[in-house]
Structure formats: C-alpha cells, structure tokens
Simulated scan of single mutants.
Amino acid sequence: MALGGQIELPGGWEAQVVGVFSDYGNPSGQVIIGLDALVRHYPDVSKLRYGLRMEPEQVPAFKRRLVEEFGLPEDNIIDQASLKQQSTAIFEQTFAVTGTLNVLTLAVAGFAMFSSLLTLSSLRLPQLAPVWAMGLRRRDLALVEVVRTLALWLATFIASVPVGLALAWVLLAIINVEAFGWRLPLILFPVDWLRLGVVAFVAAVISVAIPIRRLARTDSGDLLKVFANER
C-alpha cells in the first residue's frame, strides 16, 4: 500500500494511508487509526487498552492504585520505560555476543589466510633452486618472495572490499526485503576495512617470514638436490 492511497476498512469506510510502519514478528497486517475516528465509525468497539504518559517516579504509585482500588491484575499493567530498559539490556548483550563472534571470525579468517600463504610459500621453495643456481642471491630471492606475498595480500584486500559490499547490498536490499518485508540501511565502516587490512597484512608478513627463514638456513646441497629429484 503506497502513501496517499485509499484503504477500505470494515463497514465501507475508506481511509487515506498516511504512513507505513514495519512491525517485526507480526505476520498480520494491521491498521492504526485515531481514537476519535475509531469511536465515530465503530462506536460499539470495546475500549480495553489505554496508554498513559506520566513522570517515571509516579508510575509505581499509580500502578499500585490500579491494583488496589480497581482490582486490575498486575500482569495487565505494562510499564513501557521498564520494558524498554529490559529490551535495551537484551540488545546490548546480543551486540556484545555479536562483537565477540566478529573478533573470532576475523581471527579464523586471518589464520586461514596465514595457512594458505604459508603453504604457497613452502611450495615455492623448490622452485627457487633454479633461480638460485643462475646466480641470484638468497637475499634477492627473499625480497622477491616478500614482494610476491605482499602483492597477493594487496590484491586480495582490494578485491574483498567491493565483494563484501556487494554481498551486503544483496542481503539488505533483496533477501531481507523478501524475507521480512523491510529494508535496513547500508552503512559503510572504512575504519573496519583498514582494521581488516592490517590483520591480513600481519598474517601475510608472518606467513612469508617463516619460508624466508627456512630459505636462509637451507644448505646449498639441499637446493642442488632439487635438480636430482627432477631427473
């Protein structure tokens, strides 16, 4: 239903739509109308719920009077301020768990990247023997490995940001709309991108440092054995 459109209500009453709100978890479409219009069009509807606005310090005494003087069950009285406070506390705990999971996910991703780069660098060691035999110094070989690993890190980091943004857009603009009927805003966090890049950079440096250290300690005879194995 679009804003400004007409919606037909029971009894032949047609009202204009002035706002559309998402009610998460409610599978039924409902209409909110003013009290005067409700009484004018549906005078026989029972009025069982009321909302009162007062100072927070007056709520306990007023709630006690409703229970003692009118016999209203205490469960039927809802203090919105207390309910909001409890909901906020639950959300804060949820966000704390989400933050912990984000750190854990980032650590696992960093370890996975470290393992992958370490495996690639280890597989490259036998391939460096022919280059070493052609006269290239080990220091130059180490520099080439560092440049290659950092180039791979930079390419991965540059590609991951737009891919992640595209995935987030699909989740928010398509999947979330189809599943729940409402859309969340897409907010960018460049600082988190930099943090992710730093973690990936540290993983890349550590992964290339281990093979370079192994290369520096490898005897010349072990490098020459590569040619024997090829034969």
Rank of each mutant, 00 (worst) to 15 (best):
R65I: 07
S46V: 12
K63V: 13
R49H: 00
Q58S: 15
G71P: 15
K63I: 11
R53M: 06
A61K: 10
V39H: 13
M54Y: 10
L48H: 03
P56A: 12
A61T: 14
K63S: 14
A61C: 09
G51F: 08
E55P: 04
G51Q: 04
Q58P: 03
S46E: 14
G71A: 09
R53T: 08
R49I: 00
V67N: 07
E68Q: 10
L66E: 06
G51D: 03
P43K: 09
Q58M: 07
L66D: 12
Y50H: 10
V67Y: 07
L72M: 13
L52Y: 12
L48K: 07
P60L: 05
V59H: 09
Q58N: 14
M54F: 06
V67P: 03
S46G: 06
K63R: 14
P56Y: 01
A61W: 11
E55A: 14
E57T: 02
Y50I: 05
R49W: 01
L66A: 15
D44H: 15
E68N: 11
H41K: 05
S46Q: 13
Y50K: 08
Y50A: 09
P43E: 03
H41A: 11
R64K: 14
F62P: 08
M54V: 08
H41G: 07
E57V: 05
D44G: 00
K63C: 11
R49F: 01
G51K: 11
L66F: 06
S46F: 04
P43A: 02
R53H: 12
E55S: 13
G51N: 05
R49S: 00
H41E: 06
P43V: 02
R49K: 05
M54E: 01
F62E: 10
V39A: 15
R65V: 07
D44L: 01
Y50E: 03
E68K: 09
R64I: 15
Q58I: 01
L72W: 10
L52H: 07
E69I: 09
L72H: 10
E69L: 15
R65E: 09
E68Y: 00
P43H: 08
R64V: 15
K47S: 00
K47N: 00
G51H: 02
K63T: 15
K47I: 01
L66N: 05
F70T: 05
E57H: 14
R53P: 05
E69R: 13
V59E: 08
M54D: 04
E55Y: 10
S46W: 02
K47D: 00
R64G: 07
L52S: 10
M54A: 14
E55L: 12
